[in-house]
Simulated assay, not measured.
Amino acid sequence: MEYTHLGRTGLSVSRLCLGTMNFGPQTDEPGSFAIMDRALEHGINFHDTANVYGWQQGEGVTEQIIGRWYAQGGGRRDKVVLATKVYGKMGDWPNEQGLSARHIIRACEDSLRRLQTDWIDLYQMHHVSRETPWEEIWQAMETLVAQGKVIYVGSSNFAGWHIAAAQEAAGRRNFLGLVAEQCIYNLMTRYVELEVVPAAQHHGLGIIPWSPLHGGLLSGAIRKQSAGEKARSASGRSADALAKHRGTIEAYEKFCAELGHDPADVALAWLLSRPGVTAPIIGPRTIEQLDGSLSAVDITLDAGALARLDEIFPPVGNGGPGPEAWAW
């Protein structure tokens, strides 16, 4: 496994991040334990979760599963860089969601209890709060950092100007501020290249892409469909998206076959080649899916391959950051 620093920090994280959203709803507890153990065997030391994962309001089901895995000992907690999130609705009362100082501090305490740990390495704001001033947010985060309960703070689903505003406010307080932004980013969804990625690079944030395979569409969806294999892209919004973009996906899968690599591996390798990207989040439901993801780290896409991918999946506007992408 390769490692890199998380944004401008000295923290070393693996180039692939283990996403745990399937733990509970899709993968049972023994299966989740096995995946986390195998991830450590592969050298994946970066795990991402959220207090709302598990989709039972207020329960933090996925965090509980991870906490019971840590409780087995064997140095599991010390080896892992743990990221979780705050913002989502954790109860029916108005102050049980959002980014008020009260909710940030209470939610952190609850996550620590469920995770059976004394600290969170990367505490991420799951969404931006338009109602809460940055002074209040940073006061709460500073308190948690001072108490040793949080080491670094990150964002998720922020716009570029949100990152700039957050860092400006943090700078006034002589606080480190954000060190990472978790955003949707893949070959089919490249909007963040306009402003989010440039803002993150300017302010020293590492990019952590979620949905790197676009709901399974970039994992060989048509090939799996033809072979009669069960795939995420076979139902719901993914099925609609496949129908809409079938020609593009066909061209992509054909190109991957020419390269001699699995489509999922090419999609991850492309992200690993992008400026500012720290680690795409992989969300395996099985050990086999986890093992298969490791090949991406060893793939190097040359200039010709990258240019062909740009032809299949054109960037927004003229490509690159704004305003050049749309102004000239």
Rank of each mutant, 00 (worst) to 15 (best):
Thr4Gly: 14
Gly7Lys: 12
Gly7Val: 11
Arg8Val: 02
Leu18Gly: 05
Thr20Cys: 10
Phe23Pro: 11
Phe23Arg: 12
Glu29Ile: 11
Phe33Gly: 06
Ala34Phe: 03
Ala34Cys: 02
Asp37Ser: 03
Ile44Tyr: 00
Phe46His: 11
Trp55Tyr: 14
Gln64Gly: 15
Gln72Asp: 02
Gly73Pro: 06
Gly74Asn: 06
Arg76His: 11
Asp78Pro: 00
Thr84Asn: 04
Thr84Asp: 10
Tyr87Thr: 02
Met90Val: 00
Asp92Ser: 14
Glu96Cys: 01
Arg106Glu: 13
Glu109Ala: 12
Trp119Thr: 13
Ile120Ala: 07
Asp121Ala: 13
Leu122Ile: 15
Leu122Asn: 09
Ser129Asp: 15
Ile137Val: 15
Gln139Phe: 01
Gln139Arg: 13
Ile151Tyr: 11
Val153Pro: 03
Arg173Pro: 01
Asn174Ile: 03
Leu178Ser: 09
Leu178Thr: 05
Ala180Pro: 11
Cys183Trp: 00
Cys183Ile: 12
Leu187Gln: 07
Arg190Cys: 10
Glu193Met: 04
Pro198Trp: 05
Ile207Thr: 00
Pro209Thr: 09
Pro209Asp: 08
Ser211Asp: 07
Pro212Asn: 04
Arg223Tyr: 11
Lys224Leu: 08
Ser226Asn: 15
Glu229Ile: 02
Lys230Phe: 12
Lys230Trp: 13
Arg232Asn: 05
Ser233His: 14
Arg246Lys: 15
Tyr252Met: 08
Asp262Glu: 14
Ala269Gln: 06
Pro275Trp: 04
Pro275Asn: 03
Pro275Met: 03
Thr278Val: 13
Ile281Cys: 05
Arg285Ser: 14
Arg285Pro: 01
Asp291Gly: 12
Asp298His: 14
Asp298Glu: 15
Ile299Val: 09
Thr300Phe: 09
Asp310Phe: 01
Glu311Gly: 04
Pro314His: 11
Gly322His: 10
Gly322Tyr: 14
Pro323Arg: 00
